[in-house]
């Protein structure tokens, strides 16, 4: 298991390196420097600014500095637009918020989706099954940016039950709608994957053996069917986590949570490449880590992979 973990970790490093290098070059391919966009600056001022951001250095030196700063000091450098803040400040301010409800949404869609899918498969062809299947398809058509307005319309404007936005230290009233908006469509897809995986597992030979041994239905499902059933689900959870992370950009913006997404969209509109890249790389690193975690979870489920 340790060797497996190490090998997987070894595979993750080039991915992260490539991500940083590719992002760096993308930034330098952008038409015009980040400071030439608005009104023209006097050459002397421009040179001063470029010196401050290290833009007068040769390209490889810039890349090297950028790379080592991120990898060794976890430092994404200064923001191009906010003179007194660097990217780390912006991340430190917004990321905890985004991560909080991002993680909550991930939990909610996993738990609800898996339970619903399992229930539907066990009660195959019952009303519960039909309900889960239709809900699965309908929910997939309701991504966060559709759910957001619908929720606010219903619970804030019509019913007046919940605040329409803000963070307020993460009180539950402020969390409910962002979490529902983020998780709905993935509840749908996780339900569908779980259901079909469970149906397939229940049809397999070893379940027949377990039944022939006289085990109770509960034992058959929990002890024998659960782990093999979870394998395709777990491999889908990695992508779901990424989707939830990206979705949180919308939630930050729409529910004004003060999370990282607001800064991200802001920097995209004002071409603040430093922030844009910093956040993309951060999310990329997180994705790589989550994929690593799903790989390990998969190995835990399937003894054939452990070695």
């Amino acid at each position: 298991m340790l060797a497996y973990t190490l090998r997987r970790l070894g595979g993750a490093i080039p991915t992260i390196l490539l991500l940083i290098i590719a992002s760096f070059f993308l930034m330098h391919m952008a038409p015009g420097g980040p400071f030439t966009s608005e009104r023209p600056l006097p050459p002397q001022v421009l040179a001063n600014i470029e010196a401050r951001y290290g833009l007068d250095q040769p390209l490889w030196k810039q890349l090297w500095d950028y790379l080592t700063n991120i990898l060794l000091h976890f430092d994404f450098g200064p923001s191009f637009k906010f003179k007194d803040r660097d990217v780390n400040d912006i991340i430190a301010q917004g990321f905890p918020i985004s991560l909080t409800y991002g993680f909550l949404s991930f939990l909610v869609c996993t738990i609800v989706g898996v339970s619903l899918g399992v229930a539907a498969a066990i009660k195959h062809n019952s009303w519960l099954d039909y309900f889960a299947v239709s809900l699965g398809i309908a929910a997939q058509a309701l991504p966060n940016f559709i759910m957001g307005p619908i929720l606010i319309l219903t619970f804030t404007l019509w019913l007046g039950w919940l605040p329409g936005g803000g963070w307020n230290g993460g009180q539950w009233q402020y969390l409910i709608m962002p979490v529902i908006a983020l998780s709905t469509s993935y509840i749908g897809s996780i339900t569908r994957i779980t259901r079909s995986s469970m149906l397939e597992t229940l049809n397999s030979n070893f379940i027949r053996t377990a039944k022939a041994k006289g085990l109770s239905t509960r034992t058959v499902i929990w002890r024998h069917a659960m782990k093999p059933m979870l394998m395709p689900v777990v491999s889908y959870l990695g992508p779901v986590f990424v989707y939830v992370l990206t979705g949180s950009v919308f939630v930050d913006l729409y529910f004004s949570t003060g999370g990282l997404g607001q800064a991200y969209v802001g920097s995209a509109l004002s071409r603040d490449y430093a922030v844009l890249l910093g956040v993309t790389i951060l999310y990329g690193m997180l994705t790589v880590l989550v994929n690593l975690a799903t790989d390990l979870a998969y190995a835990w489920l399937d003894p054939k992979i452990r070695y």
């Binding site: 490539l18 038409p31 990424v242 990206t246 991200y264 995209a268 890249l277 956040v279 999310y283 994705t287």
Partner: peptide
């Protein structure tokens, strides 16, 4: 490697740049 990068963010990055 490419799959391990959040695609929507890359999409935004491409469109901005």
């Amino acid at each position: 490697i490419l799959l391990a990068i959040p695609m929507t963010l890359v999409l935004i990055l491409l469109l901005v740049i």
